[in-house]
Simulated assay, not measured.
Amino acid sequence: MMAILRIGIIGMVFLLLTLTLLPLQLLAIACNWPLMRRLPRWWHLLMCRIIGLQVRVRGAPAADRPLLLVANHASWKDIMVLGSAADVVFIAKSEVRQWPVFGWLARLQRSVFVAREQKRTTGHQISDVSTRLAAGEIVVLFAEGTTSDGNRVLPFKSSLFGAATAAIARAPGGCVHIQPVTIAYTGIHGMPIGRYHRPIAAWPGDVALGPHLLAVLREGALEVDVIFGEPVVFDAASDRKRTSRAMESEIRSTLARALRGRLHP
């Protein structure tokens, strides 16, 4: 009964919060007000607290622009976690647009939807992302292309790093800054998280969303670390694939240390 009551309360708060901020966000988008970048962060901050996500942020987004954040991806919760840490927009798979609730929220956050399997539209999609970067937006790329089991980092797909290349021509100073960000689910109810509870933290692509969502809402009290690494300068002389591999290696190493509790205070 307590679990049902908790889920019901979260659902009511979600509706109240979303419907309250919705008209203001739609107006901000229509008028191109800077508020359209800040409102989603407020929403994510409040929803993280309501759901029970304790987010610990280490470091911060680089001050330089354009800025592309490259992160690992374990769960739909990553959106709220990163969205609570900075004013960002996300690169999302095109099918997310059609998801119930999540797709609607992604559109309100002004996500850039891409169809990675449609090679003929890659140039247009990269142009959309590079336009956001050149405009000073902080863009988040989940470079694995899918969610993992939370214990590891899958191989990065380097194709959308091409957006950084496309943004160089319009960027002040002729460069884009790329910063690795590691998301690590490290605790539950104040205890280090282990393999038994990992399915609650992570959401691999072959797990149904509905039951997983209910399990997260029922359990709550998840601790997650967000670690911002050192940014690198990406210019016309940089190699896209080499940069992708360097980001992957950095995030894999940081994730391993975080899951073992070996992060520096």
Rank of each mutant, 00 (worst) to 15 (best):
M1C: 07
L5C: 10
I9G: 02
G11T: 00
V13A: 06
L21R: 05
P23Y: 05
L24H: 10
Q25Y: 06
Q25R: 12
L26W: 09
I29H: 12
I29M: 11
N32T: 09
P34D: 03
M36T: 12
M36K: 15
R37W: 12
R37F: 14
L39Q: 05
L39D: 06
L39R: 07
W43D: 11
H44R: 04
H44S: 15
L46S: 14
R49Y: 01
R49I: 04
I50Y: 04
I51D: 06
L53Y: 13
V55K: 00
R56W: 10
V57F: 10
R58W: 09
G59S: 06
A60Y: 08
A60M: 12
P61N: 03
L69A: 02
L69K: 01
L69V: 02
V70Y: 09
A71P: 08
N72L: 09
A74D: 14
A74K: 07
D78P: 01
G83I: 01
G83R: 00
A86S: 13
D87E: 15
V88P: 00
V89D: 03
V89R: 15
V89C: 15
I91N: 06
A92F: 06
A92W: 04
S94I: 13
V96T: 07
R97T: 12
R97W: 15
P100K: 09
V101K: 10
A106M: 14
R107D: 14
L108F: 11
V112W: 05
F113S: 02
V114Q: 10
A115S: 11
K119I: 11
I126N: 01
D128Y: 11
V129W: 04
T131A: 15
L133E: 03
A134G: 09
A135I: 02
A135R: 08
G136F: 07
I138G: 01
I138F: 05
L141R: 00
L141D: 02
S148R: 04
S148K: 03
D149N: 14
R152V: 12
V153S: 05
L154V: 09
F156D: 05
S158M: 09
S159P: 00
S159C: 01
L160Q: 05
L160E: 02
F161C: 04
A166R: 11
A171P: 03
P172R: 02
G173Y: 05
G174Y: 02
G174V: 02
V176A: 04
V176L: 04
H177F: 11
H177W: 13
I178T: 08
P180G: 06
T182N: 05
I183E: 06
A184K: 08
G187L: 00
I188D: 00
G190C: 11
G190V: 11
P192D: 06
H197E: 15
R198M: 15
R198N: 02
P199M: 00
I200K: 04
A202C: 09
D206K: 06
V207D: 04
P211S: 08
P211L: 08
H212Q: 08
H212M: 10
L213E: 01
L214W: 08
E219C: 10
G220I: 08
E230I: 13
E230N: 12
P231M: 11
V232F: 07
V232M: 14
F234S: 01
S238R: 10
S238T: 10
K241A: 14
R245E: 13
R245S: 10
E248L: 12
E250D: 13
I251M: 10
A258K: 01
R260A: 15
G261D: 10
L263W: 09
L263Q: 12
P265R: 15
